[in-house]
Amino acid sequence: MNQTDKPIANPIVVLREEFDDWAVLFNPDTADAMGTNPVGVAVWKRMDGKRSLEDIASEIRNSFEDTPDAASKEIADFVNTLAENGFAGLELESK
């Protein structure tokens, strides 16, 4: 089976929205934690294995004012960082 480009959040990871402008993703199995901002939170909440990166980026552009042109790349980088740290994976293609 191949990987799709549909990111999926690791269900063990806890999202703590601590302040209006700050949240923490915490993996209780590894004790790893990562800080993020409201855009990261919005991305995280959309990583359901059904939306593609581009779907997520376009939803983010629609929900946040003044999203920069580079948003798609930044979102892809964020998801990559999550994947590298075991916070997320990519959904597998079902045949």
Partner: peptide, 18 residues
Amino acid sequence: ELKDKIESTASKVMRTPR
């Protein structure tokens, strides 16, 4: 990074305890 965040927001209260 997370410790700094706690210190820099000492006067603000996070939504739930850590």
